[in-house]
Amino acid sequence: MKRAWAMIVALATLAPGLAPPAKADPAADLKAFQGYFQTRFPTLALQDYVNGPYNFSANDRAQWKQILEFPPYSFAVDAGKTAFGTKFPDGADYASCFPRGGIGIAQDYPKFDEKTGKVVTLGIAVNECRERHGLKPLSLTKGELADIVAYMTSTSDGKPIHVVIPNDKRAIAAYEAGKEYFYSRRGQLNFSCASCHVQAAGKRLRGQYLAPALGITASFPVYRSKWGDVGTLVRRFIGCNKKVRSVPAKPDSAAYRDLAYFLTYMSNGLPIAGPGARS
């Protein structure tokens, strides 16, 4: 009998599909994730990671600093501030939908909504606000919504990212789904998010340095020279998916909500540095 049990245990251990899934522990993940980068780049301070690819090339960093003398995202911030302050037809405004009037709260997003059981990014929260007041949702990738989120993010500049994973099975499941998405290879080129932003972080892909995943969300929304305007984190997810020849998910999909949840949580403690500018 003992031998039979030993055989069963041995088989379960050998067959990966039969092994019980590891218990989710976001705090331990965070420690391991940040520790991985700090071991790999020991000269970088934790807060430096928000500078993304500009930690790895003095020349690129100098050019970036020059660009920031006249921040290309400033028009978006101004437009976002105006849109944020404009009253809805029913007399309400965006500020009425958020704690502290929506000022200095970007570091707390994405959030888990216990009522719906879904992750809510700041962009989705802006759209939910619009819908509550009878307005159509905006595109989650660019345009007016990106401007509004850019403005709201600018009011959180320097505040430490503080994403919370509550002790709720659905929140843990969302976090785990985001984690799985981040590390899963997809597309014809067989890349995961981690392929570029963990394993190859700090290395070159053609002429550009790959930003580490740690701190990568801190600068969003971001003005990309390639785009010629400001875009949200979701816009970047879609672009990355297409680059590896994978059909992207929908902007408000659970996949992207959960991915943003996991990825931003991994940067907890780092300062908000958005909106940012990238090549």
């Binding site: 990966p16 599909g17 590891a22 993940d29 391991a32 994730f33 520790g35 991985y36 984690k179 799985e180 590390y183 899963s184 290879r185 997809r186 995961s192 981690a194 392929s195 963990v198 394993q199």
Partner: peptide
């Protein structure tokens, strides 16, 4: 990838 993604986690 349902199995293999875990190998990439730091």
């Amino acid at each position: 990838q349902k199995r293999l993604w875990q190998n990439a986690v730091p």
